[in-house]
Design a protein around this nucleic acid. Structure first.
Lengths: 142, 142
DNA sequence: AGAACATTGAAAGTGATATTCATAAACATC
DNA sequence: GATGTTTATGAATATCACTTTCAATGTTCT
């Protein structure tokens, strides 16, 4: 899986006429090894712990690049931090967010997906993406 | 409806030991007369056109107050602008957002609501709120 | 009207994201 | 492997959308 994504990224880099760099490789390694939902700050801190010479701006730009390459997706949970989640081919999921401890649980529900498509169609919308978050207290917090 | 909301707001003001002001009345009038989804900036501009002496900070604070009073709700569509939508007793709806022109259409779907409850329950979550947005192109834009 | 307290508007502060720019690294070519 | 061209990096700065501060002003109570 990691291999596949690294390949996908280097293909993207090549296709765009960009350059392979030590920093990008490092950041990709950390991203792939990380939890699924990381803010720029979080990833930057993890990277910096081992590579103190990699700057925030580089992490920021590289994450954008991952999104552009289709490896990551920006998500917002309304806490003012943009997070990047891993994108896996043909996978779509939504989120349960604990309002107390911040835990994020992913779930899939094909029936909801289908109903969403129907809603969009019935309003004449050409659906691109959708997102759904359920906020509440996770088992630990209640 | 407007009458009811104005009453609700003045009750809230009284209950909290706050004060009625010309500015708050004016901003409430503009909010009630507005489209359903307004950013602070948008409402501020509308208000300022007729009342050049009302400042941004006052609109900002008053909108927060509306939210606290239950007249409005903050929503985020991921474009970096907080919007305030009207809240009507016992009404819940989700949104279709046009990625091209920004049009926002509301919809309700009880079946989706029910499935969301089931998902939350099956993961042991105590549901508080949820939000769902479908992004795509509206009829005009495709 | 006067005292007590809340509100206002302009300006300054915040926090997260985005950009600039001089220096450093890639990479194609020699 | 040195060279030249182009892209990347990191530190600093800018931007954006709020958010707060504070002196002046307005409301409400008595």
């Amino acid at each position: 899986m990691k291999r596949v994504k690294k390949k996908a990224f280097s293909d993207f880099i090549a296709r765009k006429g960009l350059k392979t760099t030590r920093q990008r490789d490092t950041i990709l390694d950390f991203f792939l090894a990380s939890d699924r939902h990381m803010s720029i700050e979080e990833l930057y801190l993890k990277v910096r712990a081992k590579h103190p010479n990699i700057g925030y701006a580089t992490v920021y730009r590289t994450l954008k690049l991952f999104a552009e390459a289709g490896l990551a997706r920006e998500i917002q949970f309304g806490d003012g931090q943009t997070r990047y989640e891993h994108v896996n081919e043909g996978e779509h999921h939504d989120h349960l967010v604990c309002t107390h401890c911040g835990t994020i649980v992913e779930f899939e529900n094909p029936v909801i997906e289908k109903l969403q498509d129907e809603v969009a169609t019935s309003h004449g919308f050409l659906i691109e993406t959708h997102k759904m978050e359920i906020y509440g207290l996770c088992p630990k917090c209640h």
